[in-house]
Amino acid sequence: METTIDFRLIRQLWMFLAVAEEQHFGRAAKRLNMSQPPLTEQIKVLEQSLNLRLFERSRQGTKLSPAGAAILPAVRQFAGQAERLEQVVREIASGQSGVLRIGAITSSMLDIVPSLLSALRKSYPQVTMLVQEIDTVEGMPSLERGDLDLALVRLDGDEDYGMATMPLTEERLAVALPKDHVQAMESRVKIRALADEQFVMSARQVNPLYFDRLTAICRSHGFSPRVLREVRSIASQIAYVSCGQGVALVPASTQRLAPDNVVFRLLRERIMVRTAALAWNPHRHHPLVDFAVSWLGSRHKVGAAKP
């Protein structure tokens, strides 16, 4: 079925957004570099085509109608996507061959992402790579919307996330302790010895499965962790430990983030956790994603990709 882009509708939606945000036709017209009468006329045409009344007009001013308020979030999302499209077009027009958007949790930005970017630049010197820090919980929705092409997140378990995933790294669990903690004298710490401690944990809202996995590990060893703080990153966990605000169960490699007054001790029990996984949308083909999946898959052998 052949479709065409209704550029008039797109322009009218931009006008609607301007009026909705300015709450004044005159200010919206100035923002759009046009006079007010044509703006008013185009909003009327939009209302007729949608069969909706979008604004309530009175002597006190202009405000959104219930219907206008209902469509505003979707129009704002459209506007953001249009701006991203415009950016891509400008980059391609200037001689660049493509754009890859990568979202990553903090720990992956410290190890996996730099080497991946280096490999991409070597093979695709004209590509533009945009990296942003995300929480695990943001990864899948951003991939589904098309805001990201790749997400490096922490996926502990074999849940069906609706995206293609590939485990990358798995590490032994350690405990971060204040340097003067009694357990800091031990070469390895039994997890049961932490039963009376206050814990700084990665927030459940950031990564529910990982939070539940750590609490389940504690319960399997006879105690429920007393969570004093829930934070958004491993770096924050270590910072709170540094301030004497508890202990933290963290991957062993994050010892490189520790200040002098924090020590890491492996748990005596060999407990492994997945620390990074690659996720991408299999319904959105991107040749640079194919390269990244192949390159990372050849260097990390934790598990097979899951479609």
Score class of each variant (00 low, 15 high):
residue 2 E to Q: 09
residue 3 T to V: 11
residue 9 L to R: 14
residue 10 I to E: 14
residue 10 I to G: 05
residue 12 Q to P: 06
residue 17 L to G: 08
residue 18 A to Q: 02
residue 18 A to V: 10
residue 20 A to K: 11
residue 21 E to M: 09
residue 22 E to M: 14
residue 25 F to Q: 12
residue 26 G to T: 15
residue 29 A to E: 10
residue 30 K to M: 12
residue 32 L to Y: 09
residue 32 L to R: 13
residue 32 L to I: 06
residue 33 N to A: 09
residue 41 E to R: 12
residue 42 Q to V: 00
residue 43 I to N: 07
residue 43 I to S: 10
residue 45 V to G: 00
residue 47 E to K: 02
residue 48 Q to Y: 04
residue 50 L to H: 13
residue 51 N to D: 15
residue 51 N to S: 15
residue 54 L to E: 11
residue 58 S to C: 04
residue 61 G to W: 09
residue 62 T to S: 10
residue 64 L to H: 08
residue 66 P to Q: 07
residue 67 A to W: 08
residue 70 A to N: 11
residue 71 I to P: 07
residue 72 L to A: 10
residue 73 P to L: 13
residue 73 P to D: 13
residue 73 P to R: 14
residue 77 Q to M: 05
residue 78 F to P: 02
residue 79 A to D: 14
residue 83 E to H: 13
residue 88 V to E: 15
residue 89 V to R: 14
residue 92 I to K: 15
residue 93 A to C: 07
residue 94 S to V: 03
residue 95 G to M: 12
residue 98 G to T: 06
residue 99 V to M: 09
residue 101 R to S: 04
residue 101 R to V: 06
residue 103 G to T: 10
residue 104 A to D: 09
residue 106 T to V: 07
residue 107 S to Y: 01
residue 109 M to E: 06
residue 111 D to T: 13
residue 114 P to E: 01
residue 116 L to N: 06
residue 118 S to I: 04
residue 118 S to Y: 05
residue 119 A to W: 00
residue 120 L to V: 01
residue 122 K to P: 00
residue 126 Q to V: 01
residue 130 L to R: 15
residue 136 T to Y: 02
residue 137 V to D: 13
residue 142 S to A: 15
residue 149 D to N: 06
residue 150 L to S: 03
residue 153 V to T: 13
residue 156 D to A: 12
residue 156 D to S: 13
residue 157 G to M: 07
residue 164 A to N: 14
residue 165 T to N: 12
residue 166 M to F: 02
residue 167 P to M: 09
residue 167 P to K: 09
residue 172 R to F: 01
residue 175 V to A: 05
residue 176 A to Y: 01
residue 177 L to V: 04
residue 177 L to K: 07
residue 177 L to W: 03
residue 179 K to D: 13
residue 185 M to I: 08
residue 186 E to V: 06
residue 193 A to G: 00
residue 195 A to T: 03
residue 196 D to M: 06
residue 197 E to A: 05
residue 206 V to T: 07
residue 207 N to I: 09
residue 209 L to M: 06
residue 212 D to N: 12
residue 214 L to A: 02
residue 215 T to L: 02
residue 216 A to H: 05
residue 217 I to W: 01
residue 218 C to E: 09
residue 219 R to V: 04
residue 219 R to M: 06
residue 220 S to D: 07
residue 221 H to A: 03
residue 225 P to T: 10
residue 231 V to C: 11
residue 234 I to V: 15
residue 238 I to L: 12
residue 238 I to C: 02
residue 243 C to L: 11
residue 244 G to V: 03
residue 244 G to A: 04
residue 245 Q to E: 15
residue 247 V to P: 06
residue 248 A to N: 05
residue 248 A to T: 10
residue 253 S to L: 01
residue 256 R to W: 00
residue 256 R to V: 04
residue 266 L to N: 09
residue 271 I to G: 08
residue 271 I to V: 13
residue 273 V to E: 11
residue 274 R to H: 11
residue 275 T to A: 08
residue 276 A to H: 02
residue 276 A to E: 05
residue 279 A to K: 01
residue 283 H to T: 11
residue 287 P to R: 13
residue 287 P to F: 09
residue 288 L to T: 00
residue 290 D to Y: 08
residue 295 W to T: 01
residue 297 G to M: 01
residue 298 S to D: 15
residue 299 R to M: 02
residue 303 G to Y: 08
residue 306 K to W: 08
residue 307 P to I: 12
